[in-house]
Design a protein around this nucleic acid. Structure first.
Lengths: 236, 236
DNA sequence: TGTTGACCAGTCTTCGAATTTGGTCAACTA
DNA sequence: TAGTTGACCAAATTCGAAGACTGGTCAACA
């Protein structure tokens, strides 16, 4: 790929990722072959390997692209209304985005251990963890969480996980529609972890800006990871 | 088995179930053979089939026996202190019992689809569901839950499930010890679903009695199912 | 009457062959 | 010459049949 074609290159990368996405939701990680993806993107198999070193990195790139979309949606929502930063709103927004995007849904629903974040290299992973950590700290410090929650991180994760995972286990939960579940989630988070009085408008706006900044810090390395050929990294 | 030996019979059933329990926690449902269980109980394999029609029913009996223990522990706790009926206390008590009893822990942790409640026959299952339903209604009606929770059942299930399932998925959560997790669970349920003011002592005691009655209704059919040979039922 | 283990049919495991697939690279094209 | 490709290879996966195992039965036994 020569300089001039770089734009076209990430364009092609996107086409490949589109193909991978389509096939992933239809057949699941295991049953999708690199050749299928290449064929669907109307390119040769070798060309796929000009973008990523392994099948796994290809699908990790797909997962990252979806993560970026999620982050961008959150940022957009925060810009439109800083009150989106309230934990229950942030959570339900995320929940709805995940459940409405087939790929994200497949990634959380289908347990493809190959695609779990553990597959990512340490730098990026720790960066991501750091962001979550920083967001939590930021929000906690600015009074978006009640101060006395024991093991806040764990409590949030555990209380929230069920909403994402339950349909996998208990078919009963399929009866409710996504919006109802989102409402239940919102209610739970709101009452379990938020203070009675939300912060006033100004601080909310200020913290939202900080949060946006933190999240946007994450995007460049993610984008780099998606579209830049990585000569070293080779997740084994 | 003649009349006189009936006591001895359930005694033997218990010995078999003990053997099954031991082997279940060690090797998991799949790897345990009926012959192993019989050998460990120092009886012939055929004898196992004098108690239950299938391997599956044997292990369902084991699961039921554990459920009975759980119910009894709850009843005991309720008798000792009616305030145990407060949702956050009821939940954490259950959680701690489950996590501290290897068999219950294995049954919830290890996903042996054969042992999921779905395996039980409709009558008993619906009876069990009915009990949960009735407990929920009872508690809701008497003010143990806040009145405005949307989809209370689902919200409770989803918010709670993560605490039982998370270690399976996210090894990070293994860092906290059981008591800390139980505390987090208690906090969450307490704030998410309970009213600011708990019911007064008297009504609490009264409702606890009702709850005990409801739960104890469940025990006889369970016990029957565990120890009575069932000539018809044959879960396919 | 109560117990058992030999026995049977169906299932699961094994393991080597055959096929598929991830990944490479020499040849090809524009 | 930069960029692309599909034939090619080794490794992994699937397939299939032989064999082993296990759930469940029941005639024989205690």
């Amino acid at each position: 790929m020569h300089e001039e074609a770089l734009a076209g290159a990430t364009e092609r990368a996107d086409r490949i990722l589109d193909a991978a996405a389509e096939l992933l939701v239809r057949h699941g990680y295991r049953k999708v072959t690199v050749e299928d993806v290449a064929a669907r993107a109307r390119i040769g198999k070798g060309t796929v390997y000009l973008h990523w070193r392994t099948k796994r990195q290809l699908f990790e790139a797909l997962a990252l692209r979806e993560a970026v979309v999620l982050a961008e949606e959150l940022v957009a929502a925060l810009r439109a209304d800083p009150a989106t930063l309230l934990p229950h709103r942030l959570l339900t927004t995320s929940y709805l985005v995940v459940m409405r995007r087939p790929v994200l849904r497949a990634l959380t629903t289908e347990d493809a251990p190959e695609l779990q974040p553990s597959g990512l290299d340490r730098e990026l992973r720790s960066q991501e963890l750091l962001v979550v950590e920083r967001l939590f700290d930021l929000m906690a410090k600015r009074g978006l969480f009640r101060a006395d929650v024991p093991n806040l991180r764990y409590a949030m994760t555990a209380s929230t996980a069920g909403y994402f995972l339950l349909d996998r286990i208990d078919p009963t939960s399929a009866e409710l529609d996504v919006q109802e579940k989102a409402d239940a989630l919102a209610y739970t988070v709101r009452h379990a972890f938020e203070p009675a009085e939300p912060p006033d408008r100004e601080t909310l706006a200020a913290v939202a800006d900080e949060a946006i900044a933190v999240m946007e810090e994450l995007l460049p390395p993610y984008l780099a990871r998606i579209y830049t050929y990585d000569r070293k990294q080779r997740t084994p």
